[in-house]
């Protein structure tokens, strides 16, 4: 009986439409740089950016490097703004460079999707997560993507316990030297065809750890990356929508 009353209070927890859910206004998603930002202002933004994610002419934010600290926007209100648009995953690294005056939605580039992904993984995609220096926030968000609220399992997307059961790996963290071998072994254990997803700014570019001598990012140079999921950490909705787009889900 007690369980029934808890169950009643629990109610329906799942987000009904993961494609259209809205986040709170302060959420820092896709940035927008006003078209009329001056070169001088862009220079200021670039100089305060903690991760060198901003270049000047034209003013561009690389959300593969950005840690979403919002400092540039506090410094130049009205010129740079982080919108609550969480759909910022892309399969083309170049698309993560957001230029001034650009307010286009970020979407998967169909031309870059490998044939195997659409033919094999459309209805079921099993992933193995590898944390390689991740700070546990991205890992917790990936866990949350499968929880009772976001429930990406409804689309057949799931994290599995063994790389041998997986169709690909999701890497978090800037890839530490000490983890580089285990990452390679895990990837080698996944049967082909297989995909690689980089979740979080640390994984995509090294983030705040860029330049640390304790990293070894050679692994990334060897393979094609199928999906970049920016964020610090990436929001579960960013991850889920990115993956759904990648496997061709409408």
């Amino acid at each position: 009986m007690r369980e029934l009353s808890i169950f009643y209070r629990h109610g329906k927890q799942y987000v009904p439409d993961l494609r259209k859910a809205e986040l709170t206004p302060l959420f820092r998603g896709r940035p927008m740089i006003s078209a009329d930002i001056s070169q001088e202002e862009a220079g200021i933004a670039a100089s305060i950016c903690p991760v060198d994610a901003i270049s000047i002419s034209p003013c561009t934010i690389d959300i593969g490097k950005c840690v979403f600290c919002n400092e540039c926007s506090f410094c130049l209100p009205g010129k740079i703004r982080f919108t609550d648009d969480y759909r910022i995953a892309s399969n083309n690294r170049e698309d993560l460079l957001i230029k001034q005056g650009n307010d286009n939605l970020l979407r998967i580039n169909p031309g870059f999707i490998r044939y195997e992904i659409l033919s094999f993984f459309r209805h079921a995609l099993k992933l193995r997560q590898v944390s390689a220096g991740g700070d546990n926030s991205a890992e917790m968000e990936l866990n949350a993507a499968g929880n009772v609220n976001f429930d990406m399992g409804r689309y057949g997307i799931e994290f599995v316990a063994s790389p041998r059961h997986a169709d690909g790996i999701v890497i978090t963290g800037p890839i530490s030297q000490n983890m580089s071998k285990a990452l390679q072994i895990t990837f080698d254990s996944v049967p082909s065809p297989k995909i690689i997803i980089l979740a979080g700014t640390d994984a995509i570019s090294g983030g705040i750890f860029t330049g640390s001598p304790a990293l070894n990012r050679e692994f990334l140079g060897k393979y094609q990356i199928d999906l970049y999921v920016p964020g610090n950490p990436p929001h579960p909705l960013t991850f889920i929508n990115g993956v759904l787009d990648l496997i061709g889900h409408k």
Binding site: P50, S131, A132, G133, G134, G173, P174, S176, Q177, N178, M179, A182, I208, F209, S212, P213, A214, L215
Partner: peptide, 13 residues
């Protein structure tokens, strides 16, 4: 496995 050299970065950044 998770070593990222963070203490050194506190000094260098």
């Amino acid at each position: 496995y998770q070593h990222r050299g963070i203490e050194r970065l506190f000094v260098e950044k």
